[in-house]
Amino acid sequence: MEYQFIRDPITGFGVKISDEHTLVGRWLSEELPHNEVAQLIAKSKAIHKDSPMLVKEGKEIRFTLSHDEALFEAHALFHQADDLSNYGDDALVLDEHGLVSGCGYEDFIALLEAWYQFIHRN
């Protein structure tokens, strides 16, 4: 996973990341409070094979971490099908592209530690 952290004077901290990981970047820059990063690193490193998954509900994104992977799911995925039925005449369909993203456990820990270093240096 390739990424580049940026500091924008208007929007604050952000991350440029590959298209398939866009949701991960949004979660880091929009959903994860800066003062919770160190605590999340500690909790993440404590996850083992027999540990329960760590789940963090955000405003728009659900984060789930197991000993194998980190999964990011936009809340839009969980809308009931009957919500869209009201718009049947408009032929609307939920496009799931960009609504789910994931990465391996080790890659996530490395990303999180790099993010922590970046936001605390700048």
Rank of each mutant, 00 (worst) to 15 (best):
G58K: 10
E73K: 15
E69K: 12
P52I: 14
G58E: 10
D68S: 10
P52Y: 13
A46I: 05
P52N: 14
V37R: 06
L54F: 05
L71A: 07
P52F: 14
L40A: 03
L71V: 12
E69F: 00
M53L: 12
D68P: 03
A70I: 01
L65T: 00
G58R: 12
V37K: 09
A74R: 10
E57V: 12
L71E: 04
L54V: 01
S44V: 12
K43G: 00
Q39Y: 09
K45F: 02
S44E: 09
D68H: 11
A42T: 15
F63Q: 00
E69L: 00
S51M: 01
A46T: 01
A74V: 02
H67M: 07
P52H: 13
A70T: 05
E69G: 04
T64V: 15
L54E: 00
A74L: 06
Q39N: 14
A46N: 09
M53V: 13
H48V: 14
D50Q: 08
A74Y: 07
V55D: 08
K59P: 03
M53N: 14
F72W: 02
D68K: 11
L65I: 05
I41W: 03
I61S: 04
I47Q: 00
L40W: 03
L54P: 00
S51H: 08
I61R: 02
K45Q: 15
A74W: 07
A38S: 08
D68N: 10
L71N: 01
F72C: 00
I47L: 10
M53E: 15
E73I: 14
E57K: 13
S66I: 01
H48M: 13
K49Y: 11
H67Q: 09
A70G: 01
I41D: 08
L40C: 02
M53H: 12
T64L: 13
S51R: 03
L71M: 07
A38W: 08
F72I: 05
K59H: 11
F63L: 09
E69M: 04
K43F: 08
V55Y: 04
V37N: 04
F72D: 03
K43N: 14
E69W: 00
V37P: 04
A42Q: 13
H67F: 11
E69H: 03
F72H: 07
K45M: 08
H67Y: 14
H48Q: 14
F72S: 02
I61W: 01
V55S: 10
G58Y: 08
L71T: 03
A70C: 02
S44Y: 07
M53Q: 13
Q39I: 13
E69C: 08
A38N: 06
E73S: 13
S51L: 04
F72A: 01
L71S: 05
A46M: 08
F72P: 06
G58I: 11
P52K: 15
S66L: 06
K59W: 09
I47P: 05
M53D: 15
E57A: 14
K49F: 12
A70V: 07
E73A: 15
V37H: 01
P52T: 15
M53I: 12
R62P: 04
R62K: 07
P52C: 11
I61M: 04
K49W: 11
A46D: 08
L65W: 02
